[in-house]
């Protein structure tokens, strides 16, 4: 690693101020960033740890009944605390990485990084959640812009993610055998006003909504409705672990299974 100063702010305001320093970079749980730093693929002068910001930690509900998860809340906490309200999201959090990673990694870090194979982006997008930063609120549909790209601006941090709670939802994941990230994973969320289907791991453009599946499921919320549907494999990742065609196929299978898990 190149060396850097570490700032340990205890409030969002302090964090924002620290991020104003030259070549400053925020770090939440560090579970992706620290390995990146070890490989010398990033060279911040100042690392601003968001870990000690109490106001960014924890789970609550707002007046609109949304589930509000602080940006610095670990996967372990989400897994443990949202199970009653939003079991599919708790299940997603409980299956990220491994237990030690879940004790450090945070929702804000995951959403800010927007790894094309991360789990949370699928949950956030399928839920139609709102990504709250230190200075604005961004709808999930406007937030994820592509592989490792988001609507966040320099120095902007994810302080909270607000989830409307669907009537039913399920997250179905097929693992990449080495990294244990999703090779393809699909989050299906059924709301009173429609179904949202988000796919991670598959596309070269990062997490995306599979609108054909949404339309089919809006017409008939049943696994059979998507059984014959083929995702477009042309923009899908092809690598050692699967071709684009395989990922496109898995997108269909995971979607079908997620729906089947909901309908029982």
């Amino acid at each position: 690693m190149y060396n850097f100063d570490v700032e340990m702010p205890t409030t969002i305001a302090e964090a924002v101020k620290a991020l104003g320093r030259e070549e400053a970079q925020p770090m939440s749980g560090g579970q992706t960033l620290i390995p990146t730093l070890k490989a010398r693929l990033a060279a911040p002068s100042v690392l601003v740890s968001l870990h000690g910001i109490a106001e960014m930690k924890g789970v609550c509900n707002n007046d609109a009944g949304q589930l509000c998860i602080g940006g610095a809340t670990t996967h372990a906490t989400v897994a443990a605390e949202v199970g009653t309200q939003y079991p599919a999201l708790a299940s997603l959090a409980a299956r990220i990485g491994d237990p030690a990673v879940r004790n450090r990694g945070t929702i804000g870090g995951s959403v800010a990084n927007n790894d094309p194979s991360a789990c949370y982006p699928a949950g956030v997008l399928a839920s139609g959640a709102t990504v709250v930063t230190n200075n604005r609120e961004i709808a999930a549909d406007d937030y994820f812009l592509g592989m490792f790209e988001t609507a966040l601006e320099e120095g902007e941090i994810v302080t909270e993610v607000r989830f409307p709670i669907p009537e039913a939802a399920h997250y179905e994941k097929h693992l990449q055998p080495a990294s244990r990230f999703p090779l393809v994973a699909v989050f299906v969320a059924k709301f009173a006003d429609g179904v949202r289907v988000a796919v991670t791991g598959a596309s070269e453009n990062g997490v995306f909504r599979w609108t054909e599946a949404e339309e089919a499921l809006n017409a008939n919320f049943n696994a059979e409705a998507v059984a014959g549907l083929k995702a477009d494999g042309s923009a899908m990742i092809s690598d050692l672990h699967g071709t684009g065609a395989y990922r496109a196929h898995l997108t269909g299978v995971m979607t079908k299974r997620a729906v089947a898990a909901i309908t029982g």
């Binding site: 570490v6 340990m8 560090g30 579970q31 620290i34 390995p35 690392l47 740890s49 870990h51 372990a76 237990p99 030690a100 990673v101 004790n103 450090r104």
Partner: peptide, 15 residues
């Protein structure tokens, strides 16, 4: 009290 990967945490974070 929580299991963490000590290779993926800065020493200053354990202060």
């Amino acid at each position: 009290g929580e299991a963490v990967k000590s290779c993926t945490m800065l020493a200053v974070e354990a202060n």
